[in-house]
Design a binder for these strands. Structure first.
Length: 422
RNA sequence: GGGGGGAUGCCCGAGUGGUUAAAGGGGGCAGACUGUAAAUCUGUUGCGUAAGCUACGUUGGUUCGAAUCCAUCUCCCCCCA
């Protein structure tokens, strides 16, 4: 099967330059393909995973991926579809984040497989020595401001009467355009992929490469992944779902996928996993026959957790899930509890040997204030060691603990372990 | 350089001297139903047990009383040059 047909089946193609041409281009040799990631935070999140895994898909199909981390573009800020101007991060921050993203991205493609081994680059390398005059003369001359202003991606910023756009952000697309042109020159890169919001920036590169390198290169964008309600995918109540286990624990990560809405399971299996068509069809057959068993969600959660955090972390995540949602808390052994703690269940140690429920909740940061904690307790939202408690003054001590700890549950699925002095 | 508009709670947004901890919507959280799903319905959403305290860009002022009036500063937007 041609890689493009597979991608099409997975719903991974949104827009592209002449698709027949691109298909032929991919069939007729090993191609070099790139995608860029700007350091806008100290970790990637599940949204970044789509293009990153796409690079991997191309690598598996025999092509050579380049993972670009935007040390330079990250200094400027991409205005595409952003409603407001962003404040600039300091040079030190960007540098720090750049390093972190470089480490993260390298886990998803193979840098050691011969001819089509992946390459990691940083656009800071070819922009740092650029001087203003040559940038404006050599690069800037190829861009029409009229055209740039017509871009859908900056329309919001040009039309809203309470928002503007700085020259800094407006110029962003020139830098990204330059990246493509450079990678084409240095590595004969002929395909760039990115989210559909990147179409404009990618086209800047396609145009610039044609003008400066006299090369016709390709562009391919991926659809924006959304939730069932149409909003952006990858957010939970506590923010983005990060790939960094220190920011989003493997257990939380696993749970995130396990909680996917039914109507989205098939879509995400196709977009995010490397399961074959047959495997996905088989999973969905089971899912549709018995949706309440959530075989689809389970498969998705397993595949993703294994991919991002590894087999061991997956097993931990599964065992916590098992203990919390299947068994009864009172049956947990001392060992199980140690395991839960190790596997990343939120944990707080309290100094003292007796606390009211209210104190325990606020001290463990389960609620931001006493007021909030009271509301939760009154609202029947708190369970202690498996039993609902509605008395804020209920006393927690060593005596009524489970093997030395208290396990608090807020709502349906937020757990917290509390240990106190003996 | 000149002229005009604006800054309100997580976000959008109403409010133009007291009944405003601040309408409405979104989002969040929680409850019911369920399958750790979706949809729906309900409650809640500054801090404080409470009295009360702190809040409407900054600082100061007018007033018995200000998010609302005046001055100042900061920032943003639009138009003209």
């Amino acid at each position: 099967m041609h890689i493009l047909d597979d991608l099409q089946w997975r719903g991974l193609i949104k827009q592209s330059t002449d698709i027949e041409n691109l298909k032929e281009h991919l069939s007729s040799g090993m191609r070099t393909i790139y995608s860029g990631f700007d350091p806008t935070a100290d970790s990637l999140h599940v949204g970044h995973l789509v293009p990153l895994l796409m690079l991997k898909r191309f690598q598996l199909a025999g092509h050579k991926p380049i993972v670009l981390v935007g040390g330079a573009t990250g200094m400027i800020g991409d205005p595409s579809f952003k409603a407001t101007e962003r404040s600039l991060n300091t040079e030190k921050t960007v540098l720090d984040w750049t390093k972190k993203l470089q480490n993260q991205t390298s886990a998803f493609v193979d840098f050691n497989c011969g001819d089509n081994a992946a390459l990691a680059v940083n656009n800071y390398d070819w922009t740092k020595s650029l001087n203003v005059i040559s940038f404006l003369r050599d690069i800037g001359k190829h861009f029409s401001v009229n055209m740039m202003m017509n871009r859908e991606s900056v329309k919001l910023r040009l039309e809203r009467d309470d928002q503007g756009i700085s020259f800094t952000e407006f110029s962003y697309t020139l830098l990204q355009g330059l990246d493509y042109k450079e990678l084409n020159k240095q590595h004969n890169c002929t395909i760039q992929i990115g989210g559909s919001d990147q179409w404009g920036n990618i086209m800047s590169g396609v145009d610039l490469t044609r003008r400066m390198n006299n090369q016709h290169v390709h562009a391919l964008t991926l659809p924006l992944v959304t939730k069932a309600d149409g909003t952006k995918f990858g957010k939970t109540e506590s923010g983005a779902v990060w790939l960094d286990p220190k920011k989003t624990s493997p257990y939380t990560f696993y749970q995130f996928w396990l909680n996917i809405e039914d109507v989205k399971v098939e879509e995400y299996l196709k977009i995010y996993t490397f399961l074959s068509h047959d495997e996905i069809n088989a999973v969905m057959k089971e899912q549709n026959e018995a949706p309440h068993l959530r075989h689809g969600q389970k498969t998705l959660a397993e595949e993703m957790t294994r991919l991002v955090h590894g087999e061991e972390a997956l097993n931990s995540a599964k065992s916590i899930t098992e203990a919390l949602f299947k068994g009864t808390l009172t049956s947990l052994s001392q060992n199980d509890i140690q395991q839960l703690k190790q596997d990343g269940m939120p944990f707080t140690f309290l100094e003292g040997n007796e606390f009211t429920l209210l104190e325990a909740i606020t001290n463990a940061d389960i609620a931001p204030s006493n007021n909030e904690a009271r509301k939760l307790i009154k609202g029947n939202a708190i369970a202690l060691n498996g039993e609902k408690i509605t008395d804020a003054e209920y006393k927690l001590s060593k005596e009524n603990a489970l093997n030395g700890v208290h396990i608090l549950k807020k709502g349906k699925k937020h757990w917290h372990m509390i240990e106190m002095e003996s």
